[in-house]
């Protein structure tokens, strides 16, 4: 029983991370139908950024978010203006295909550039609380895991508030539902897409911090993109709270599969679930039909 709870707790912690990983991707896809498969690479870059900020400025990793989030907002802004904005005018299928391809190119460029600049060595940010745990009823709960869950809840809640309580947030939702109709409301739709994309990239900072506290190297870009895609599909398009649940579902499924089929095939179970959902319920658990 204790072992089961322990495994479930790990599932929850990694699930919270997966939710954070998928958040930015989900936002961008929901608003403008761009599948940014480079998202994993952006998270990887965020992790490296956290690494250098902590190394040179001696910040606590979570504190470094103050610098990392705005930085990546700007990076997202530049990426959109430079590469993705011109896709807005294309018809839907072309838009999706081209955004997929371009972000794919960015994924390759980023992961290779990172390897060239910083080598493929494993990195991690060590803190005073790395490895520390709380013992609750015989279950070991790592500080960082708890912080991740906490962070995930706060971030999702904050984004939710932004989208439902602010004019601009509502405008973004409007754009995601009906691009043309949104422009008839006086909403500057291309600006809305730009800001959404920038926010989506900025959101990579949060999982970036958590990843930085584990070991990482440039190749995590692919793993993270993978996870983000799986959670995106599980959660369904347009459902932000679904992202959190989708992440948790994936985390728990993976944790349970370690119990059942062993560590080696842990990822496979998640992937199989993913493919099945793609085939039979692509709109996911929470979402409307894409």
């Amino acid at each position: 029983m204790g072992a089961l709870l322990q495994i479930l707790s790990y599932g929850v912690f990694s699930g919270a991370l997966y939710g954070l990983v998928a958040l930015g991707l989900s936002l961008v896809f929901g608003v403008m139908n761009y599948l940014n498969v480079a998202h994993g690479a952006l998270i990887m870059l965020a992790s490296y950024t956290v690494l250098w900020v902590c190394y040179y400025l001696h910040f606590d990793p979570f504190l470094s978010l103050i610098l990392v989030i705005p930085t990546f907002f700007v990076i997202g802004w530049i990426l959109f203006m430079g590469l993705f904005q011109r896709l807005l005018a294309l018809p839907e299928t072309e838009k999706l295909k081209n955004s997929l391809l371009i972000s794919f190119g960015i994924l390759l460029i980023c992961s290779n550039a990172a390897t060239m600049l910083w080598t493929a060595d494993e990195r991690a940010v060590a803190t005073s609380y790395t490895g520390k745990v709380i013992d609750l009823l015989g279950v070991r709960l790592p500080y960082i895991g708890l912080a991740t869950v906490f962070l995930a809840i706060i971030v999702v809640f904050a984004v939710h508030l932004f989208l439902t309580r602010t004019y601009f947030g509502k405008a973004i939702r409007a754009v995601s539902q009906d691009y043309e109709a949104a422009s008839w409301m006086g909403i500057n739709t291309s600006r809305a897409c730009l800001v959404s994309f920038a926010i989506g990239v900025a959101l990579a900072g949060f999982p970036g911090v958590v990843i930085a506290l584990q070991t990482f190297n440039p190749m995590v870009s692919f793993d993270l993109t993978n996870k983000a895609l799986i959670v995106l599909i599980l959660a369904g398009v347009g459902s932000l709270r679904g992202v959190l649940f989708g992440g948790l579902l994936l985390g728990v499924v993976e944790a349970a599969s370690v119990f059942l089929v062993g560590v080696a095939y842990r990822e496979v179970v998640g992937l199989v679930l993913f493919v099945l959902v793609l085939m039979f319920r692509p709109q996911g658990i929470g979402g409307r039909k894409a």
Partner: peptide, 21 residues
């Protein structure tokens, strides 16, 4: 059964399953 972009990410997942297996 997966249409459009879902096909793309689905085939990616299948490739990963094959690789890990």
């Amino acid at each position: 059964k997966m249409k459009g972009h879902y096909f793309s990410i689905g085939t990616l997942a299948l490739a990963m399953i094959a690789l890990i297996t």
